[in-house]
Design a protein around this nucleic acid. Structure first.
Lengths: 155, 155
DNA sequence: TCTATTTAGTTGCATTTGTGACGATCTTTT
DNA sequence: AAAAGATCGTCACAAATGCAACTAAATAGA
């Protein structure tokens, strides 16, 4: 007999080859690198950054809408909004038609920070792509797109 | 003038196109799906699962080694080990040469759970690849490999 | 050998996160 | 128009996480 595998051997799982693990680790590494930029420069947390980015992108939104667009839980958004409000980076306005809702909008200072951070984000991504090489970048985007198509629709 | 962009327009960052965000979201979605399996079936947390998987893969390891292999902080490992010990899924053995170190090893029950979970993990990955299609799966793996090569070495 | 430094693992404390309940408001049903 | 239900955002509480200090043990330096 040549290379027949040991009978009892279930293919042992190799954690560092397991896709969910690899994805998590990569996501954490890549995010962390960028996070340290906005943390060092502005002391922002990730929820705060996401909130800022979402408002910068869309103008005025409700807290619920921010959560929907940036995949964050209600309470995370609520706390991030509070914190950005403390910095005077955003203002709240009650909706007159529906007074439960508040419209959140960046202030001048908020927009300025957003401009800066958006530029940093853009640069970060550009450098990342450069390091991955044209091929790696293309594969990464394609792989992510495939994943998104998978989990976007229900099952 | 035709389609010249608005002069003032900084390319606004589109969060859902931003790679760190996309990676995080994808990793969370994909991990969560599998996590709910071991959570529902065994009530395991993610650190516990990783610890179990690492021990299942390597046999006996120290807590430090588990952390190194599964990218977890000391304290996470410590708590996961404690919890798995409570379930009688692992045993500790002091190293005689270096009595600070403990060698952690799965019990019979621990190995049995591991076998089951490793199979589930394998099946999950197989199904994931099937849904991604041959092409998507290939691109995902290549993209991850590129990322890993990038952040593995220093900068 | 005695001291200083490093390492393994745990624990207390502070911070972050998620869960559930809540008041307020709007919508739907009857 | 009254009651029942849903939605918006917040808060109190519990669970998970990270950080720093700690004990115990090993190693290195004097």
């Amino acid at each position: 007999m040549t290379g027949k595998q040991n009978e009892a051997a279930m293919p042992p799982l190799v954690l560092e080859d397991f896709i969910p693990y690899r994805l998590n680790k990569a996501a954490e590494a890549i995010s962390q690198r960028f996070a340290s930029q906005y943390r060092d420069e502005y002391g922002l947390t990730r929820p705060e950054w996401r909130t800022l980015a979402t408002l910068g992108q869309f103008g005025a939104l409700s807290a619920t809408a921010i959560g929907a667009h940036s995949s964050m839980h209600k309470t995370k958004v609520s706390r991030a909004v509070f914190s950005l409000e403390q910095r005077h980076w955003l203002k709240r306005k009650r909706d007159d038609a529906d007074r439960r809702t508040e419209h959140l909008e960046l202030t001048q200072a908020g927009r300025k920070a957003y401009q800066h951070l958006a530029t940093m984000a853009h640069d970060y991504e550009t450098e990342l792509f450069a390091r991955l090489g044209e091929r790696g970048a293309k594969e990464l985007k394609a792989g992510l797109a495939a994943l998104e198509a998978y989990y976007r629709q229900g099952r």
